[in-house]
Every structure is written in structure tokens, then in C-alpha cells.
Amino acid sequence: MNAEQALDIARETIFVLLIVASPIMLIGLAVGLTVAIFQALTQIQEVTLTFVPKIIVVFLSMLVLLPFMLNQLEGLMETVADRIIAGGG
């Protein structure tokens, strides 16, 4: 395996990482903004109010998105395994 092939695998890996992580990060961002707006409107400055809803929603979204994430990671692994079997070509 030469440097170009290693960079191709690294590029694909980073792309898959972004595809897998982005939905959960965006969901966490949306919940955080919603809670922040709620806190600003009601002037409730409870610290746990920011973390508990985010943790619950991110956990539930991971359960829902797990099949999608697994398919993406399986596709990456199949690509890498095919390159290894083919001799890096």
C-alpha cells in the first residue's frame, strides 16, 4: 500500500465519520438551542435543565439511527477489506 492509497482510505473514513456523527450532533444542537431559548424566555437558569433533555434525546436518537450508522460503517469496512484482499488496488 502506498501513500496515495492510505490517504484515500483515510479520506473515506473521515467522510463516513461525518455522515455517521452529523445527525446526532445536529439533534443535540437543536435540543440545546430549544432549551436555551426556553431558559431565556422563562429566566430559569437551572444547570441540569440543559443536560438532561440533551442526554435523553441523543440517546433515543442513537437508538433510532443505529441501523443507519451500522450500514455506513459496514460499507466502509467492506471497502477497506476489498482493498486489502485486492492488494491495495
Results as ranks from 00 to 15, higher is better:
Met1Thr: 09
Met1Ile: 13
Met1Glu: 12
Asn2Lys: 03
Ala3Glu: 12
Glu4Leu: 15
Gln5His: 06
Gln5Trp: 05
Ala6Gly: 05
Ala6Tyr: 09
Leu7Ser: 06
Leu7Phe: 10
Asp8Cys: 01
Asp8His: 11
Ala10Trp: 13
Arg11Gln: 10
Glu12Tyr: 05
Glu12Met: 12
Glu12Phe: 04
Glu12Gln: 15
Thr13Arg: 09
Thr13Val: 00
Thr13Ile: 01
Ile14Arg: 02
Ile14Cys: 03
Phe15Met: 08
Phe15Trp: 12
Val16Cys: 06
Val16Ser: 03
Leu17Tyr: 10
Ile19Glu: 08
Ile19Cys: 05
Val20Tyr: 04
Val20His: 03
Pro23Glu: 08
Pro23Asp: 04
Ile24Phe: 11
Ile24Gln: 07
Met25His: 01
Leu26Pro: 00
Leu29Gly: 09
Leu29Cys: 05
Ala30Gln: 01
Ala30Asn: 02
Val31Glu: 02
Val31Lys: 00
Gly32Lys: 01
Gly32Pro: 04
Leu33Phe: 14
Leu33Ile: 11
Leu33Tyr: 07
Thr34Ala: 14
Val35Gln: 00
Val35Trp: 01
Ala36Trp: 04
Ile37Asp: 05
Phe38Lys: 00
Ala40Trp: 03
Gln43Leu: 07
Ile44Asp: 04
Val47His: 11
Leu49Gly: 00
Leu49Ser: 00
Phe51His: 08
Val52Lys: 11
Val52His: 06
Ile55Ser: 08
Ile56Asn: 06
Ile56Arg: 01
Val57His: 05
Val57Cys: 11
Val58Ser: 11
Phe59Met: 15
Leu60Ala: 15
Leu60Pro: 00
Ser61Leu: 10
Met62Ser: 13
Met62Asn: 07
Leu63Ser: 08
Val64Thr: 10
Leu65Lys: 11
Leu66Ser: 14
Pro67Ala: 06
Phe68Ile: 08
Met69Pro: 03
Met69Gln: 10
Leu70Gly: 09
Asn71Ile: 13
Gln72Asp: 04
Leu73Ala: 08
Leu73Met: 14
Glu74Ile: 14
Met77Tyr: 15
Met77Pro: 00
Met77Asp: 03
Met77Cys: 12
Glu78Pro: 05
Glu78Gly: 09
Thr79Arg: 06
Val80His: 09
Val80Met: 12
Ala81Gly: 02
Arg83Lys: 15
Ile84Thr: 13
Ile84Met: 14
Ile84Trp: 07
Ile85Glu: 15
Ala86Val: 10
Gly87Cys: 11
Gly88Met: 06
Gly89Lys: 15
Gly89Thr: 13
Gly89Asp: 10
